[in-house]
Amino acid sequence: MTGAAPLLPEPRQPGRVLDARLHLLDRQVLDVDSVPVGTLDDLELGPSGPGAAAGSPRADDPPLDGTTTVVVTALLSGPVLGTRVFGGRPPASRWHRVLWRHVTDVGTAVRLANRGDDLDLTWTERWVRDHVVGRLPGGRHDPDAGP
């Protein structure tokens, strides 16, 4: 040890314990049909309380510290990845948010109650489907249906 006093034992918590980086960040996010919709690139934190998760956080929100109870309000994906790799911080308007209330399970992947196509963050998938892949002959062919 570092010579400091021994650590205090952590009391048992009343709910499931998750470490953000170990259990949530960079996991696959799957929709209700188990289709991947993105990776969990970051978490949005906000003050606890009613209506906390309703809108995007704004610049004039009061700064958070230990005096406020803070909760995870939404999962973030998309442009946040670039800033996690290269540093910096994207403007809040460019976060693709999935509200925590849609999460149904956290395991080796994070599962949602929605369909992926209903989420903003899959817009590139829909764009490529509508403009490129879906237009090629056979692009909507079911591989299980035979040739």
Partner: peptide, 20 residues
């Protein structure tokens, strides 16, 4: 890392993770 505990009010199916 951030330690989260799922003991907040239920939000959807799971409890909301509190920054512990």
């Amino acid at each position: 890392d951030l330690r989260l505990v799922l003991d907040g009010t239920t939000d959807g199916i799971l409890a909301r993770p509190r920054l512990h």
